[in-house]
Amino acid sequence: MGKTVHKYFTIKDKTEPHQHIKIAEFRKNVRKTNPHKHNNYFEFVFLVRGSGSHTIDGRAYIVNPPVLFIIRRDQVHHWELDDEPEGYVLIIKKQFIDDCVDKALKEFLLRMSGHSCFYLEDATPVTALFGLLLAEWQKPAHGNAEVTEGLLKALLGISLQQAPYPKKQSRTKTDIYQRFEELLGHTDTLHNSVAHYALLLNTTPQNLNAVCRRATGEPAASVLAAHLLGEAKRLLLYTDLTVGQIAARLNFKDGSHFIKYFRRHIGSTPHAFRQLE
């Protein structure tokens, strides 16, 4: 376990190198934390007690238990709690997802990644399943992997039934699309070019565009834009990098091109966004 320090946020790793999944009780002494990212894993936080706020990528969510938070590996977040929290933390690494043979579990994880916060009406089954997962994890050698996968599948499935948005028609998530999302998840190497990613995926920009439309209803440029803009906002909010430095980091040809791109999608210039936030 360790952390990497940046100007205004850290990159934390709460797992050991060999651990692909981890379950623990939420630390009761947590009140306020500094902004931080996670080192290449999802973090699910389920709270049954506590109050305050939880900020994810600049958006503050009220801690109103029972509540389930989902923090993706590329997101910066921090806590501002007013009293003692109670709940669970579940960490899932990419390797766990890759090794999982259950396609339904993979689909549940993909659907969960589209949310940041669930306010649950019925927390009883979710609480029970988190407790069972923790009990399995605390066994020698962290218990039985098949049992853990089964409990996790049940937990995600039941949680998704209380998702805050209407269920959308399922689309085909092809291997190319999944690998595209995986490449975009590496925020340190984001590149403002669909053709760049098509080359890495050994396909054409036209085919990647078609694949993204089948998977999401959006073209590849829109899928890429969501990741570019998300990282741009994080860098504007949590670092003192100049607009030109951010443009270079995201592989825009120059600062003016980045400013126009940001304003077209967000409705304000990067400087104005940074000042308002």
Rank of each mutant, 00 (worst) to 15 (best):
V76D: 07
E181R: 14
F9Q: 03
L235R: 11
T127Q: 05
I91M: 13
E80Y: 02
S53F: 09
L68D: 10
A248H: 07
C100N: 12
V89N: 07
A210D: 13
Y261P: 00
I21V: 02
G244R: 02
R49N: 15
G2Q: 02
P35T: 07
H186T: 07
E121P: 05
K37G: 13
E43N: 11
L276A: 03
Q178F: 09
A104L: 09
E86G: 14
H20N: 13
L184E: 02
P140A: 15
K168D: 11
H265I: 05
R274D: 06
I259C: 12
K93V: 12
N192D: 04
N29D: 12
S116A: 07
I70N: 03
E277L: 13
R213V: 10
H78P: 12
H18L: 04
D188V: 01
K22H: 08
E277Y: 07
K260L: 01
E121R: 12
I62G: 14
L105V: 06
T187K: 02
C212D: 03
T269F: 00
R264A: 01
D57H: 09
N34Y: 11
G230Y: 08
T33Y: 01
S116G: 08
K94E: 04
F252D: 08
L276K: 05
Y119V: 00
K106E: 03
I23D: 09
C212S: 13
R274Q: 01
E136M: 01
S256I: 01
A195I: 00
A104P: 00
K12C: 06
N202D: 14
I71M: 08
E43I: 05
D99L: 04
L109A: 12
N251S: 04
H191K: 06
F258E: 03
N207H: 01
V101R: 00
H115M: 01
L208D: 03
T10C: 07
